[in-house]
Nucleic acid binder design. Structure first.
Length: 446
RNA sequence: GGCCGAGUGGCAGAGUGGUCAUGCAGAGGACUGCAAAUCCUUGUACAUCGGUUCGAUUCCGGUCUCGGCCUCCA
């Protein structure tokens, strides 16, 4: 029984799929204009775990994650760099794909690029115009918020509050300051597509509505993203999709992850406290970064510190240590695995799940040879669900490393401890950890 | 200002109306040539003030502090 916290109802709810034979999930993907930071990495990792969990429970799931490659931020950035837009989006997309690889994120079933689906977007907007939920003014197509009575339900805002906030851009042609752009005109230099409303480009929110419709249908099970997308992005998406689809809900469960903070405050471009993923990966391997991203409950903020990442790396070492010597043939201890699964099923309580993995680690060390394999298989299986412990960590050693290991073995046999200690230090410098056990000298590589 | 969320032991971080979170760090011990790993032992934790209750860290209300959204943002 899977329970998920639903932003729409503000409650933890039993997950009841629309169709248990086909689960549909959509997560808002990146706008490809800037080097990914660790905040960009949290949703893909969190949703990757949810994806793995759903796969464990249900036979068939379609997960769609879009790539936004048309956006004014992209245009501005390309101009600043003096490079063609396509070059910027392609190279940034490549960085995101690299991130996926280094953080062991499974590929979603579809990763559509928005620019490959402009006709669907135009059709979607046309429908809203035809139904009179949208109006055309000054070459723009605007969604008329006032026509959707439940606007604000998702983000828990009343119409009055939004007006009082009054930080909304008030273009003079808007009927209502809250109305938002579905389509806007492009000048010669700006990317644009021919449409019934002239040459232009889509507004921010419409792409997701159109892509969901295209790939998954009118109503999906889970729609997700960072909590900061709730308003205005998801609120607007929700409004336009519901209006286009005769009141059918867009998503049954709205699932949002908390944000990454630095010294307690949100990491954001405007504050300039961005930590780039590539910089973190220079110091720590992807798996340690992944575990760090999973080390707090997904809805809680996660304060990014060096100490935290180091602690994750240590934890991984401990887990891998416990898996040492595993044949790969153990059978999973169902009782322990259920305990772990129950933790994840309870609104993705990954920290609790990790504590169970620690418990299993202890059991491995205390077990006899027969049950050890079972516990190791179980730990491995738990790790799999979190996208961890998949590495074959006993990597090949270089000839030099092998040579040093041999030398040390000999030195110990000769009881030349001064030399053996020196060789151990040398190997450590190379990243090879030597441990002496009853069975003799053992090595592992970080 | 409005709407959310949070305050747990040295740190990180779950959770619960009444015997255990867990990890790291610390202390003591076992093992070891020394380490490391591992094992055993070890901690008057739940912002604050009231209320409900036989009993609250857990429920309710007030207060304080912090964060998020209301603007591009994952």
């Amino acid at each position: 029984m899977l329970y998920l916290y639903n932003t729409l109802t503000k409650e933890k709810e039993l997950f009841q799929p629309l169709d248990p034979h086909h689960i549909k999930m959509y997560v808002c993907g990146p706008t490809v204009y800037a080097t990914p930071h660790i905040g960009n990495a949290r949703p893909p990792v969190i949703f990757d775990v949810l994806y793995r969990l759903l796969k464990e429970i249900y036979p068939n799931i379609t997960y769609v994650n879009n790539i936004t490659d048309v956006d004014d931020k992209i245009n501005a950035r390309a101009k600043e760099l003096g490079i063609p837009i396509r070059e910027l989006t392609d190279s940034t997309l490549k960085l995101y794909q690299d991130m996926t690889k280094s953080l062991s994120i499974l590929s979603p079933d579809h990763m559509p690029r928005v620019t490959d689906h402009i006709p669907e977007i135009i059709l979607f907007i046309q429908k809203l115009v035809d139904l009179e939920f949208a109006y055309i003014v000054s070459d723009h197509v605007l969604f008329e918020v006032g026509k959707y009575k439940r606007y604000g339900k998702l983000s828990n805002k009343t119409l009055d509050q939004l007006i009082e906030g009054s930080r909304i851009e008030v273009a003079p042609y808007k009927k209502d300051p809250r109305d938002f752009v579905l389509w806007k005109p492009s000048d010669e230099e700006t990317p644009g597509w021919e449409s019934p409303w002239g040459r232009g480009r889509p507004g921010w929110h419409i792409e997701c509505s159109a892509l969901i419709k295209t790939f998954l249908g009118e109503t999906i099970d889970i729609h997700g993203g960072g909590i900061d997308l709730t308003f205005p992005h998801h609120e607007n998406e929700n409004a336009q999709s519901i209006c286009a689809h005769d009141g059918e809900p867009l998503a049954k469960y709205w699932f949002h992850n908390g944000l990454i903070t630095v010294n307690g405050v949100k990491m954001s471009k405007s504050l300039g406290n961005i930590i780039l993923l590539e910089d973190v990966l220079k110091e720590y391997n992807g798996e340690a970064v992944r575990l760090t991203l999973l080390s707090a409950h997904y809805r809680q903020p996660l304060d990014w510190t060096r100490k935290r990442t180091e602690s994750s790396a240590e934890t991984l070492k401990k887990f891998y240590n416990a898996l040492d010597g595993y044949s790969g043939n153990g059978s999973v201890d169902q009782k322990l695995f259920s305990k772990f699964l129950n933790a994840l099923n309870d609104d993705l309580n990954i920290p609790l799940g990790l504590s169970i993995m620690h418990e299993i680690t202890g059991l491995i060390h205390k077990a006899d040879n027969v049950s050890r394999e079972t516990f190791q298989a179980t730990l491995k299986k738990c790790g799999e669900l979190l996208g961890l412990l998949g590495k074959n960590y006993q990597k090949d050693l270089s000839p030099k490393e092998l040579e040093l290991i041999e030398q040390r073995k000999k030195a110990r046999a000769d009881k030349n401890f001064a030399l053996s200690d020196q060789l151990r230090d040398e190997l450590k410098e190379l990243g090879v950890i030597i441990e002496d056990t009853k069975e003799g000298q053992k090595w592992s590589k970080i």
